[in-house]
Structures are given as C-alpha cells and as structure tokens.
Amino acid sequence: MPAGDTGPSQPPLTTTLSNTPPSAPEATAANGKGRLRGILLMLTSGVSNQVGAATGALGFPGLGPAGVVAIRQAVAAIVMLAVVRPPMHKFTRRQWLPVLALAAIYATMNLTLYTAVHRIGLGLAVTLEFLGPLAVALAASRRRVDLICALVAGAAVFVLMRPQPTTDYLGIFFGLIAACCWAAYILLNRTLGTRLPSAQGAAAAAAVSAAGYLPIGGWILIQHTPAPKYLLYAVIAGLLASAVPYLFDLFTLRLVPAGFFGLFMSINPLLAAVVGWLILDQHLGPLEWIAITAVITANATSAITPTK
C-alpha cells in the first residue's frame, strides 16, 4: 500500500487529565512539539517507504516483481492483522464488497508499481504513481490555481513520456496504472470509512490480497528456488514499505492535521529519486528532475493555497 494510508483518523493516544485548559503559551508549545514529532515521524515514514521499495527492487533478479509483491503483501497482512485485529467473521455482505474491491486494488497497484520500478526506476515510477492522489484532489476543485497545478503536472508527465530512443512506454504505462489504482484506493477508502470502523477494512483487504498472491508466491518459490538473500530483500520491503509507514502514519495523524499530512506526502517522489540513486544507482537526467520537481510543486501549491 502507498505511504500515508491509515484509514480514518484515529482518536488521540492520550486524554486530558484535567478540566482546566492549558494557558496559551503552554498550548502553543505543546502544539509546536507535537507538530515537530509529527514531521519527524512523516519523514521517517517516507524514507522507510522508499528504502523499502528500493530494497524490494534488489529482489527482482531472484523473485521478479510479482514474487517480491507476494512476499511484501504477506508481511503487510500479518502486521496489519496483528495491529488492527478486524473481526472479519462478523463482516456483512455490504462490508465485504468494498473490502474485496480494495484487495483487488492493493494487488494491482503494488504489482504495477513494482513492474514500473523494474523498468523505469524508482524515482520516475513513484512520481507517476503520485499523480493518482494529485488528480483526485484537483478533480474535486474548481479553483483557478488548481487548474494551473493540473496543467503543470500534465506538462511534467509529458516530459517524462517524451519520445526518445530510451523511452520505456510500457514502464510508463504501468506507472500510470498504479496512479489510477491509488486514486481508486482513495475514493474507495471513503466508502469503507462509512461501513467499517478504524482501519478494519484496510487490514481485511490486505489479508485478502495476500491470500490471492499465495499461489503466485508458491509457484515462484518452487520453480526458481531463489537464493535466501532475495527472500530477505522482499521481507524487508514488506516491513519498511508497508508495516513501518502504516504504524508511523497512524501515530502521525494524531499529531498533525490531515491537510498538513497530505502536503508533506509531496516529498515522496523526491525521496524516491534520491533513494533510487543511492541504493539502486538509478540516475536521472536534468529534465526528469525538473518533472519531479514540477509534480511536487503542483501538489504543494494546491495544498497551501487557501480556499476562498
């Protein structure tokens, strides 16, 4: 799952022990410390997510994208089921329908993203995937500034897709499919939030998606017998790219507003490009860096511009 998903916002970790409200300076200091902790958690979550994705890419030679996704999904499901403990045996048909749809989105989104990473690199793949939530945000707005942001993001995609001998159109296609899946994931989570409390729907969907990948993972392990290091890479990817972001984001949304959280997510394409360079030795040209910067700027501008 992408970084930033925690389902509906959770209640605060602690409650006020006194009915006497804090003084203004005390409240300001507390809010400042909370936001600083939130920023550190978001930064850690983002780095963990991209390092996990890069580590998963190291497993491609032995497992392929599908094998890495199968193991990553299993790890994510184990962690989410342990933390959330959804009572799936009590789910009604009305609750199961969006859960199954979300499970299909999980399976498709992760596979297409990892296939894109395999073909065009981590930085460009994550940038294309990030167009999904950006499109959802812009589509719901009628502001002129958001139209400009959409045009900027569209120009950035054109730069990434510009015809040249080394252009991998199939990799770009998979990246755009991942973006569509992320957009659908956001919209579907709104439905799940009205039918199931907390993150029960997301945890159940992760479990169903992992179960669907079991035959694929089993077949790959039997046919190829990959070296243990590739299995370790996939497990680490599941922990760093799914478990850690999920838990950290769960706590972060108790410290910072959802809008600020969404704005901070804009740095993920940049983190992906840097991590892809450091871990996978994937180098980007000046135009690719400009396109990534444009997508980040478009989202940030749309998020910080006040609504009239």
Rank of each mutant, 00 (worst) to 15 (best):
P2K: 08
A3C: 13
T6Y: 11
S9T: 15
T16S: 15
L17T: 14
N19C: 07
N19I: 03
P22L: 15
P22N: 12
S23Y: 10
P25N: 10
R35M: 14
R35K: 12
L40P: 02
M42K: 00
M42S: 07
T44A: 14
V47D: 05
S48H: 06
T55W: 04
G56P: 10
L58K: 07
G59K: 09
F60K: 06
P61Y: 05
G62K: 12
L63R: 10
P65A: 14
G67K: 09
V69L: 05
I71L: 05
R72F: 04
A77E: 10
L81I: 12
V84F: 05
R85N: 10
R85L: 12
P87G: 01
H89T: 15
R93Y: 03
R93E: 11
R94M: 11
Q95T: 00
Q95I: 01
W96D: 06
W96V: 04
P98H: 05
P98Q: 08
L102F: 14
I105R: 02
I105Q: 05
I105A: 10
N110H: 12
L111K: 04
L111C: 11
Y114F: 15
Y114H: 14
V117T: 10
H118K: 11
R119A: 08
L122Q: 11
A125L: 00
A125E: 05
F130M: 08
G132C: 08
P133V: 03
A135Y: 00
L138Y: 02
R142K: 09
R143Q: 13
R143E: 03
R144A: 09
D146I: 01
D146F: 02
L147F: 03
C149V: 01
L151P: 02
G154P: 01
A155S: 14
A156K: 00
V159F: 02
L160I: 08
M161V: 13
R162V: 13
T167C: 03
I172H: 13
F174H: 09
I177R: 05
C181I: 04
C181N: 06
W182R: 04
W182C: 00
A183L: 02
A184Y: 03
Y185A: 09
L187Y: 02
N189F: 01
N189E: 08
T191I: 12
R195E: 07
L196W: 05
A199R: 03
Q200G: 04
A203M: 04
A204F: 03
A206T: 11
A207D: 00
S209D: 07
S209N: 09
A210K: 12
A211W: 06
G212T: 11
Y213K: 08
H224I: 11
K229N: 13
K229Y: 12
Y230W: 05
V235F: 07
I236N: 03
G238L: 06
L239E: 03
S242V: 01
D249S: 09
D249W: 00
T252K: 04
L253H: 08
P257D: 15
F260R: 13
G262T: 10
L263P: 09
N268P: 00
P269R: 10
P269M: 07
L271M: 15
A272G: 11
L278H: 01
I279M: 15
Q282W: 06
L284H: 15
A291Y: 03
I292Y: 02
T293N: 01
V295L: 07
N299P: 04
S302F: 03
A303G: 12
I304R: 04
